[in-house]
Nucleic acid binder design. Structure first.
Length: 752
DNA sequence: AGCACGCCGACT
DNA sequence: GTCGGCGTGCTC
């Protein structure tokens, strides 16, 4: 009997343990990397075979596995190694890491098998993912011979054989009917043995028929050099990471296309990661125009079945290029040759729930294991990537010129303090007001960016100054005019607007802040303005995003107002003005990345202006015009910003000069939570004393900025260390690893 | 995740 | 006296 160790795929955090099962003789082919169905306690669950066990364990009698889920192992050696590394790096269980590679949460389905008398005799376990198939026809050897012999009297049959012989793939009845081959003829062909039926898997593709014409621009010198550099790592495959730093409009996509084409010509597959698929419809279209059906797309709005189809295409090499969001980094490839990460600085590459992986980190690991190049593209690289490029760890490729020779926009700073002094209480400065009017008169378009943070409307009592907070979370409720209710942005609870203050019973309650709706109303009042709003509420549908951008670029509207998403990834030539309502609303968050994020957002937004033949104009409204980040964003000088910000990071001990780990303890009892947090801190301080050479720093515990969410108190601990391995290993071997209410966020995006 | 085991409050 | 609350622990 063969014995295997299995990681159980249950959505629990603290199941680090593996379990040994026996393999019955009929399933003897099962090996490491297979997905199996196993009895586990009172249930039947999916498991991953992680290793072979030498012998039957002595202490207990182990159960037998019930079935396999696939006809081949799901994990190859590289995927297993990546999963293994991931669980150690991100401090999660092996099963949690391996689950990321599966399209969907679990894939098993139990089917009851009955005998003739209707009695239950067994259960059949199968893959719950439905494989859509259809009957197709192929020509047989005998059929080809019959075609050569050609019998003139069998006109329809000869025609059918011709069609089948010419097609390089099996054809469906439907396809054959469209070229005048009837079902009757096909039946005869099959009876004669000239043709055979074969069942073909049908792959669902919601992006079919959305292609546009291939356009090929000629490359600038900079672009050509970048393509050549990347090409050399493809033709002589080795791991090399390129930071492609190109200003907005410098044509990074053109470089991606050529690099992808080179890899595909060499017979390799390509993975292109994008921050959010909805914002990148343009990039998908351009790649489809070049590569047609070779392109597969994966994002969170695909159904589990669609996703499984995409995975299947990549694994069987029937698609060569995968464009996808964060989770696509876990796709199975048959022969991956290049990974491209667009807008690599975007925080959406970091998963904000456990395991809190970063797609870029995972991609680099997979590339290292496969020995293939990675291209990181951005106008405003993550400071960590920029630092590595400057150190020479990454190859630095720069695009300093706009591809079509257009000018960078002119940025004007509007001091909102002066506006207030002058009695302007509108959300629009005089400068932005005038610029909007002028844009409308000239028949041009404008984008207005509103950072939701700092703009949401909260409800406050005028007498006692208390704002109305969520009863379950430590945050203010936000007023939504739709439905006349207040909603908590953390737990989603809604509450009606009270008549009187719950604190002092005053009836003098009023609304503060400026929401999207208020800004929209104010701008809409201007003459000649036809405004369109884009935010989370207006983009729930699969292609709603694209539709909004389409109707905006058609000229139906001349102002597009929205949150961060209006700032990214689209190119509308008639946009000459970009207004930023509050440049500093993200700047003052208590987070070490606030400056970096603000700079990137302002640069991206400004880059939307003047991408056609007309010069762009940006109005940047701020209450803090002397802030160095705002000033540098106005000149769009990334290098100067990076230099000053890196200095600050070094001084304060933040990445890229140190690694950080955030540990969060959740408990509905505040005291119990803080005492557990304190125990973790004590544990780390002991480690600190034992290893003074590690330069380990432990901060906290302190309550999170949002100290309570859904009635759970949150305590944070921050660990800083230039090399985190030792700390991670210590935690891995500690009791805290399996605590249900302790969460590790390795390389957190935010420390609050 | 399920499910059992186990130890404290309000009820037929 | 017991029904049931959910805290804790186990599943090869």
């Amino acid at each position: 009997m063969k014995y295997i160790n299995v990681a159980i795929n249950l959505p629990v955090k603290n199941l680090f343990k593996q379990f040994t099962y026996a393999v019955p003789p009929q399933l003897d082919h099962v090996d490491v990397g297979w997905r199996v169905v196993v009895p586990f306690g009172y249930q039947t669950v999916e498991g991953f075979v992680t290793s072979l066990a030498a012998a039957a364990p002595a202490e207990y009698e182990c159960k037998e596995i019930l079935a396999t889920l696939d006809t081949r192992p799901w994990f190859d050696a590289e995927m297993l190694a990546t999963a293994n590394w991931l669980s150690e790096y991100y401090l999660c269980s092996p099963a949690e890491a391996m689950r990321l590679f599966i399209p969907g949460k679990t894939s098993i389905k139990r089917q009851a098998v009955y005998n003739d008398e209707g009695k239950l005799i067994a259960y059949d376990y199968e893959n719950k993912l439905k494989i859509k198939t259809r009957i197709c026809f192929v020509v047989t050897k005998a059929g080809r011979e019959a075609l050569v012999a050609y019998n003139k009297r069998l006109r329809a049959q000869m025609h059918a054989l011709e069609v089948l012989a010419e097609a390089e793939r099996p054809l469906s009845g439907e396809e054959l009917a469209s070229v005048q081959v009837s079902a009757a003829t096909l039946r005869i062909l099959c009876e004669k043995g000239w043709s055979e039926r074969s069942e073909q898997r049908v792959l669902r593709n919601s992006y079919a028929n959305r292609t546009e014409l291939k356009e090929s621009l000629h490359l600038t010198d900079e672009q050509r050099q970048a393509v050549e550099a990347i090409g050399s790592a493809i033709t002589e495959p080795h791991q090399e990471t390129f930071l492609l730093q190109g200003i907005t409009g410098s044509g990074k996509t053109e470089v991606y296309l050529r690099a992808a084409a080179q890899a595909m010509e060499a017979g390799k597959q390509v993975l292109l990661l994008v921050p959010e698929i909805a914002l990148t419809a343009q990039i998908v279209k351009r790649f489809q125009a070049w590569f047609g059906d070779e392109v597969a797309v994966a994002h969170s709005k695909l159904s589990q079945n669609e996703r499984a189809d995409v995975w299947y295409k990549m694994r069987t090499n029937s698609a060569k290029l995968l464009i996808g969001v964060r989770s696509a980094v876990f796709a199975p490839f048959s022969d991956l040759g290049l990974i491209i990460i667009d807008e690599e600085h975007e925080s959406s590459y970091k998963q904000d729930e456990r395991p809190n992986y970063h797609a870029r980190t995972v991609a680099l690991k997979r590339a290292q294991l496969s020995g293939i190049p990675v291209v990181l593209g951005s106008a405003t690289p993550d400071l960590e990537s920029f630092y590595k490029a400057r150190q020479g760890t990454y190859t630095h490729l720069r695009l300093l010129q706009r591809a079509n020779g257009s000018m960078l926009p002119h940025v004007e700073i509007a001091d909102m303090r002066l506006e207030l002094q002058r009695g302007n209480k509108s959300v629009l400065s005089a400068a932005l007001n005038d610029a909007l009017l002028q844009t409308a008169v000239q028949g041009e378009q404008a984008i207005v960016l509103l950072n939701r943070r700092g703009f949401s409307t909260f409800v406050m009592c005028r007498d006692c100054g208390e704002s109305i907070v969520c009863p379950h979370c430590a945050v203010a409720l936000v007023y939504h005019s739709a439905g006349e209710a207040m909603r908590c942005h953390y737990c989603g609870n809604t509450a009606p607007i009270p008549d009187e203050c719950p604190n002092c019973h005053s009836r003098r309650i009023r609304f503060f802040g400026t929401g999207t709706q208020k800004a929209e109303a104010e701008i809409a009042e201007l003459p000649e303005i036809r405004i369109l709003r884009m935010d989370q509420d207006s983009t729930v549908k699969k292609f709603a995003h694209e539709d909004i951008l389409k109707s905006f670029s058609s000229g139906e509207y001349n102002v597009l107002l929205g949150t961060q998403m209006v700032a990214k990834g689209h190119d509308i030539p008639n946009v000459t003005l970009v207004g930023i309502l509050s440049a500093d609303s993200t700047l003052n968050l208590p987070d070490f990345r606030a400056s970096e994020r603000t700079f990137a957002l302002l640069t991206q937004a400004a880059g939307r202006a003047g991408r056609g033949d007309r010069a762009g104009h940006v109005v940047l409204q701020t209450y803090d015009p002397d802030n160095p980040v705002i000033k540098l964003a106005a000149t769009q000088d990334y290098d100067a910003f990076a230099a000053s910000e890196l200095e600050i990071r070094q001084e304060l001990g933040y990445p890229p000069y140190t690694e950080i780990l955030k540990i969060t303890v959740l408990d509905k009892e505040e005291v119990r939570g803080s005492s557990l947090a304190q125990r973790i801190v004590n544990f780390l301080q002991t480690l600190q004393l034992e290893h003074p050479e590690q330069e380990l720093l432990v901060l906290g515990p302190f309550p999170a900025i949002v100290a309570k969410v859904r009635d759970l108190y949150r305590m944070n601990i921050l660990v800083k260390c230039p090399q985190m391995e030792l700390v991670k290993r210590a935690l891995w071997n500690s009791e805290f690893k399996e605590c249900r209410n302790v969460f590790f966020d390795v390389d957190p995006v935010s420390v609050v």
